[in-house]
Design a protein around this nucleic acid. Structure first.
Length: 802
DNA sequence: CCAAATTTACTA
DNA sequence: AGTAAATTTGGT
């Protein structure tokens, strides 16, 4: 007898273990680890993953697997192990880890239906409700206000039964082709017999006489300007027939991509790639930190390292931050490796994601370029893993399982015995520190390609502007330079750092700030809909004209939004053409690219935007980059704020003067003396690293200490404080003396969606038992979590301290 | 004393 | 999570 060990799709701590099921004799041959199954679980059926197959079980009342949901495993044995490891590392449930590794559409969909077993003895009200049908969706039954008690009685009496169904959501895209169903001469005969008023039908038949090969129905209709019904009637006459073909949804126009060939490497690129190639050859799972300034040609190094891996018959994973994963980026890889590339990112529809995943699953591609979750690409012979812009926060998932793609990459690289490259112009402090200690191997590329120097950075002290009576958000210097570029027909990128800023609404009479009733945060004014919105829940109201507290009409907006900047820019520079890029103007699909295209075609002088324009922009005509105010980011209560500011400024500066024309960067700030701004303006990563390390050491922050963040939330503030206090006590009792526990402190946003939030932070260097202790604490509160709406969130090495 | 509401136990 | 069984509640 074969027994499958199954992780079921029920995310609770009581079911976070395998359940044994008999593999029915018919399935015994082909049931494998990593397949999805539907299994009976209590009175219903649920989806599950087979994680192991054994010959017997300690349990003696086994039920058989209901159904296999896959014909080939969706998880490799390696990925099953990675999933188990991931769940343990992040204190998540196994099922959550497995779900996170697969495309959305492979999640189960559950359906209940009622089936009448007899049509006589049913109670009148049920009979009437079923309307003579033998089966009905339970959802429909509820919609029709069916009596559940009466239904239960019928089920007990055995007249009706409830069917539980597990379905997979995946779909395949099919194209419908039309082709002749008979010999050509028969079509000609039919044409003769065809009534003369059937013009459209005639046209179609005539078409097939000259073009007997199959044609896509959509195309045929387009060509002959007809509709499906005409085609249908010809099919009914058996003259034509339908043929369906499975195709991949293709979000990229592959034909439009220009193939490229390897470029000659510069000396520094050569020096960087050599140790990587050696690691590929020797199958070493070394981690390389490629520290290369913007424009040093990191991508070419990646491309050629991958080429080597492909020649060995192995596969490559390339991770790119979500915002940098533009079509241009994908084109670069497709240009070099053609149809060997799959791309996975959030702009794809669920169906498109599934198709890209299927290509990997079917071994039809060798390279995957994608955002965070692409680290789980089901390759079986990985030769290299590359993480570009490794310092980016988007590599950390901010929901369960809270994993960091870098850690998964290292885990997989160890299994596959292959190198990992972490690439960045501004490596995360943790990474650079590891490189210095020799944990990672450091590869430096300090020079830009073609000797283009980094553009000079000028700091403008906004306090001086204020003293000089300039109350606008543009310094005189910046305006001069902008005018100069417009006159020379060159382009400008203006960057507004939104983080930390918001456009809140305040009454000037009584100082009342409009707040969200559910969350402890000010409402943000959105001009496009003339609404006040909460960024943490979906609360929104129409903009008010009077103060809610005192009734005065002296309501004013504070803060700086891109819309407001655009307006005042238009006032000072009426002649300038401006393209604004923010959440509002880029919401529609493809809008992002369209705006950038327009800017690239010089249809505007100024590109004004938020975070999203800091990455990957490369326009040869941009010679001036302005940062309007960087201070908000500096003052975010986060120990990484200096580092984030440094990264951002370096990133933004790299957008100017990338080609022939020399560039310039102007940074407006109220604190020009701050070291992260000073050192960023000098492009001095080394000094920044040294200085920031001292701060981190002094305040016991990473990389000197590890952090873990526990956030407790509940509708009742007293309850939250009590629980958090208790958790702190428990942690203090069980963790070692070296660990520091901070808290309970209210989270930066104390209330979200009517839930109060308090947190505890653990700073430690070595706590091997930490996860076990936290698991025990979670177990201790298990009951309250399940029944009393208590939530305890655990985040190891958090990126967001919110 | 019964039925409804709430809590608890369990899924192989 | 979702269900059935067990226990408490609360109204007569």
């Amino acid at each position: 007898m074969k027994v499958a060990k199954v992780i079921v799709d029920v995310p609770t701590s009581q079911t976070n273990h395998t359940f044994d099921y008999i593999i029915p004799a018919d399935y015994e041959e082909f049931a494998q680890k990593g397949m999805r199954v539907s299994v009976p679980f209590g009175p219903r059926k649920v989806m599950g993953f087979i994680v192991d197959i054994t010959n017997d079980s300690d349990f003696d009342q086994l039920k058989p697997i209901d159904q296999m949901m896959d014909i080939t495993p969706v998880l490799t044995e390696e990925l099953i192990q990675v999933g188990i490891w991931l769940a343990e590392q992040t204190v998540s449930f196994y099922i959550q880890a497995f779900q996170a590794m697969l495309p959305q559409v492979l999640k189960a969909k559950y359906k209940k239906e009622i089936e009448a077993l007899t049509d006589v003895e049913l109670s009148p009200q049920i009979q009437q409700l079923l309307d003579g049908r033998a089966v009905m969706d339970f959802e429909e039954f509820e919609q029709r206000k069916g009596n559940y008690q009466a239904l239960l009685k019928e089920i007990k009496a055995g007249h009706v039964k409830m069917n539980y169904k597990v379905q997979s959501k995946e779909t395949k895209k099919r194209l419908v082709f039309i082709e002749p169903n008979v010999e050509p001469y028969l079509i000609e005969e039919a044409l003769v017999d065809m009534k003369s008023n059937a013009k459209k039908q005639r046209a179609i038949l005539e078409y097939f006489i000259t073009h007997p090969e199959p044609i896509e129905q959509r195309l045929l209709m387009e060509k002959l300007n007809t509709t499906t019904s005409t085609v249908k009637s010809l099919i009914q006459k058996h003259l034509l027939r339908k043929k369906e073909q499975l195709v991949y949804r293709n979000p990229y126009d592959d034909d439009a991509i220009q193939p490229t060939s390897p470029l000659p490497l510069s000396t520094q690129q050569q020096q960087a790639i050599e140790p990587v190639n050696e690691a590929v050859d020797r199958e070493n799972h070394h981690v390389f930190l490629l520290h290369g300034v913007t424009g040093s040609g990191k991508t070419e190094v990646y491309l050629q390292a991958i080429e080597k891996v492909l020649m060995k018959g192995q596969e490559a994973i390339v991770l790119v931050p979500e915002i940098a994963l533009t079509p241009q980026m994908v084109h670069r890889f497709k240009g070099r490796f053609g149809s060997d590339v799959a791309a996975l990112h959030s702009a794809l529809s669920p169906g498109e994601k599934f198709d890209e995943w299927t290509k990997i699953h079917n071994n039809e591609v060798k390279v995957v370029v994608g955002a965070r979750s692409a680290i789980f690409a089901p390759f079986e012979n990985i030769g290299i893993i590359i993480i570009d812009e490794e310092h980016e926060t988007s590599y950390k998932q901010d929901e369960q399982p809270r994993y960091h793609a870098r850690e998964v990459a290292k885990k997989r690289a160890e299994f596959h015995q292959c190198p990992v490259i972490l690439g960045s112009a501004t490596p995360l402090l943790e990474s650079y520190a590891r490189a210095q200690r020799g944990v990672y191997q450091l590869l430096e590329m300090p020079e830009r390609m073609n000797d283009v120097p980094m553009p000079p950075v000028e700091l403008v002290d906004l306090r001086d502007e204020l003293h000089a009576g300039n109350r606008t958000m543009f310094s005189r210097k910046l305006l001069d330079e902008i005018r100069d570029r417009i006159q020379r027909n060159e382009q400008i990128v203006l960057f507004l750092n939104r983080r930390g800023y918001s456009t809140f609404v305040m009454c000037r009479e009584c100082g009342d700030v409009m707040k969200c009733p559910n969350c402890d945060i000010a409402l943000t004014y959105h001009k496009s809909h003339h609404q006040l919105k909460c960024h943490y829940c979906d609360y929104h109201i129409a903009m008010v004209s009077e103060c809610q507290a005192c009734g005065s009409d002296t309501i004013r907006y504070f803060g700086t939004g891109t819309q407001k900047v655009e307006e005042s820019l238009k006032e000072v520079l009426p002649e300038a053409g401006i393209i604004r890029m923010d959440v509002d103007t880029t919401r529609r699909k493809g809008a992002h690219e369209k705006l950038l295209d327009r800017f690239g075609q010089k249809k505007a002088d100024i590109l004004l935007g938020t975070q999203m324009i800091a990455k990957g922009l490369d326009f040869e005509n941009v010679t001036l980059v302005g940062v309007l105010a960087v201070d908000a980011m500096l003052h975010i209560p986060d120990f990484r704020s200096a580092e984030k500011t440094f990264q951002l400024l370096t990133q933004v500066s790299g957008r100017a003067g990338r080609h022939q024309l020399p560039g310039k960067v102007i940074i407006q700030t109220y604190s020009p003396e701050h070291y992260s701004i000073q050192l960023a303006s000098q492009y001095d990563y080394q000094s920044f690293f040294q200085q920031e390390m001292q701060t981190r050491k002094a305040f016991h922050y990473p990389p000197y200490y590890f952090l873990s963040l526990l956030t407790v939330s509940h509708p009742n503030q007293v309850k939250v404080m009590e629980v958090t206090k208790m958790i702190r006590k428990l942690l203090g009792k069980h963790l070692s003396d070296q660990a520091t526990i901070l808290g309970p402190t209210p989270s930066p946003i104390v209330r979200i969606n009517n839930r109060y939030r308090y947190q505890c932070m653990i700073k430690y260097r070595h706590e091997p038992n930490q996860r076990m202790i936290i698991r025990k604490i979670l177990q201790h509160y298990h009951e309250e979590i399940q029944q009393h709406d208590l939530r305890i969130q655990v985040d190891f090495e958090p990126y967001q301290l919110m």
